Amino acid sequence: ETWTVFRRYSRFREMHKTLKLKYAELAALEFPPKKLFGNKDERVIAERRSHLEKYLRDFFS
C-alpha cells in the first residue's frame, strides 16, 4: 500500500522532535539531516525524500 502525504520537510522534523520528547525510544530513528545549501536542487530533494521515506517505514514498523 502506498500513501502520498504533502507536507513540508520542516513539519516532519517538528513531528519527529515532538514525538521524541514523548517516546524516548524514537531517538534511535535517524531523521534525515537538514541541508543549508542546495535544498532546491532536484538531486538533494530526491535524496531527502528517499531518506524521509526510510525514516517513515522504520517509524511505522
Rank of each mutant, 00 (worst) to 15 (best):
T18I: 15
D58T: 11
S50I: 09
A28C: 07
P32W: 15
L19F: 08
R49W: 09
T4V: 05
T18F: 13
D58M: 11
A28Y: 00
R48A: 11
V44E: 08
F37A: 03
K17P: 02
S10C: 14
H16A: 12
F60V: 07
L26K: 06
A27I: 08
E25Y: 03
P33G: 14
A28M: 04
L19Q: 00
F6N: 03
V44C: 15
D41A: 13
A28W: 07
A24K: 11
I45F: 13
M15T: 03
S10A: 09
L21A: 15
M15E: 00
P32T: 11
Y23V: 15
R49S: 08
S50F: 08
F12V: 11
L29K: 06
L29S: 03
L36G: 02
F6A: 06
Y9G: 14
L52D: 01
H51L: 09
F31H: 06
P32I: 13
H51Q: 10
R11G: 10
H51M: 04
T4E: 14
T2E: 07
H51C: 04
A28S: 08
V44R: 12
L26R: 00
D41E: 09
T2P: 11
H16W: 15
S50T: 09
R7D: 03
I45Q: 13
F31Q: 01
R13D: 15
F12E: 00
Y9N: 12
K20G: 02
W3C: 01
S61N: 06
L52T: 04
E14Q: 03
E1M: 05
K17Y: 02
A27F: 07
F60Q: 00
A28E: 02
D41R: 07
R43Y: 03
F31W: 13
F6G: 07
P33Q: 04
E42T: 12
T18P: 03
T18R: 06
E30M: 15
A27E: 01
N39T: 05
S50H: 09
L56I: 10
H16N: 05
I45S: 14
A24W: 02
G38Q: 09
F59R: 03
F6K: 04
A28G: 08
K17V: 06
L19K: 00
K20N: 00
F31P: 04
L21I: 04
R7N: 08
E30T: 12
K17R: 07
R13V: 04
S50G: 08
Y55H: 08
R8S: 12
R49K: 15
L52Q: 00
R57H: 02
N39W: 08
L36P: 05
Y23C: 13
A46G: 14
L21K: 15
K35T: 02
L29D: 09
L26W: 10
E42K: 14
E47R: 12
L56K: 02
L21S: 14
D41L: 15
F6E: 07
L56W: 07
K40G: 06
A28V: 00
L21N: 05
A27Q: 13
K54N: 08
R57E: 02
S50D: 08
Y55R: 15
F12S: 02
E25P: 08
T2V: 07
G38V: 05
E53V: 14
T18N: 03
R49E: 07
S50K: 08
L29T: 08
R48F: 12
V44K: 13
E30S: 13
T2A: 01
T2W: 08
A27V: 09
E1C: 07
Y9A: 08
R11L: 09
T4Y: 08
H51V: 13
G38P: 05
K17H: 02
T2K: 04
R7M: 09
L21Y: 03
N39R: 11
Y55K: 15
V44L: 07
S61I: 12
E25L: 03
R57V: 04
D41V: 13
E47C: 11
P32D: 09
A27N: 05
T4R: 06
G38N: 07
F37S: 03
A27C: 12
F59W: 10
K22L: 12
M15G: 01
L19M: 13
E1G: 02
H16Y: 13
F31V: 03
A46H: 02
F6Y: 01
L26N: 01
H51W: 09
P33C: 11
N39V: 10
H16M: 15
E30K: 10
R8I: 15
L36M: 02
E47V: 07
P33I: 14
E42W: 14
K40Q: 07
K35W: 12
L52W: 14
F31A: 02
R11D: 06
E47Y: 06
A24L: 05
T2Y: 05
I45L: 11
K20T: 00
K22I: 11
D58A: 12
F6S: 06
I45P: 14
R13T: 09
R49T: 05
L36K: 03
V5M: 12
P33H: 12
N39A: 13
K35N: 11
L29I: 15
R13C: 05
L29R: 07
R7K: 14
F59I: 10
V44M: 06
E47Q: 07
E30F: 15
T2G: 01
E53S: 15
M15R: 00
K54R: 11
K20F: 01
Y55Q: 08
E30P: 10
A28T: 10
W3S: 08
K54V: 05
R57K: 09
N39I: 11
E30W: 15
L26Y: 05
K54S: 07
L21C: 08
L19P: 00
F60A: 01
E42V: 10
R48E: 04
E53Q: 12
A46T: 14
Y55N: 06
E53M: 15
T4G: 12
L21V: 12
G38Y: 01
E53P: 14
P33Y: 04
R13L: 08
M15P: 00
F6L: 06
H16P: 07
R13K: 12
F37T: 02
D58K: 14
E25H: 01
Y9Q: 03
K54G: 07
T4A: 09
N39L: 11
P33M: 13
L21T: 09
F37Q: 03
R8G: 12
F59Q: 03
L56F: 02
D58L: 09
S50C: 14
Y55S: 12
F37H: 02
Y9D: 03
E42Y: 06
L19V: 02
A46K: 13
Y55C: 14
S61C: 04
E1N: 08
T2M: 03
L19I: 03
F12K: 00
N39S: 10
H51P: 07
L21E: 15
E1V: 01
F12Q: 01
F60W: 13
L52F: 11
R11V: 14
H51T: 14
E47M: 09
E42L: 13
W3F: 12
R48L: 11
E1W: 04
S61E: 01
P33W: 15
H16V: 15
K20V: 00
F37N: 00
V44Q: 11
W3T: 04
E42M: 08
F60M: 06
R7L: 10
L52I: 09
S10N: 03
H51Y: 06
G38M: 03
R57D: 01
S61T: 05
R57T: 05
R43H: 12
E25W: 10
E42S: 13
A46D: 10
L21H: 12
E53R: 15
K20A: 02
S10I: 06
G38W: 08
S10Y: 02
Y23E: 00
L19Y: 00
R48W: 14
H16I: 15
D41F: 13
L19N: 02
S61W: 15
R43C: 09
F37M: 04
A24Q: 06
L56Q: 13
F31M: 01
L52Y: 00
W3L: 03
R11T: 09
L21R: 13
L52S: 02
S50M: 01
R11C: 13
F37D: 07
E47F: 12
E25F: 06
R57N: 04
A46S: 13
K17T: 03
R49A: 07
K35H: 07
N39K: 14
Y9V: 10
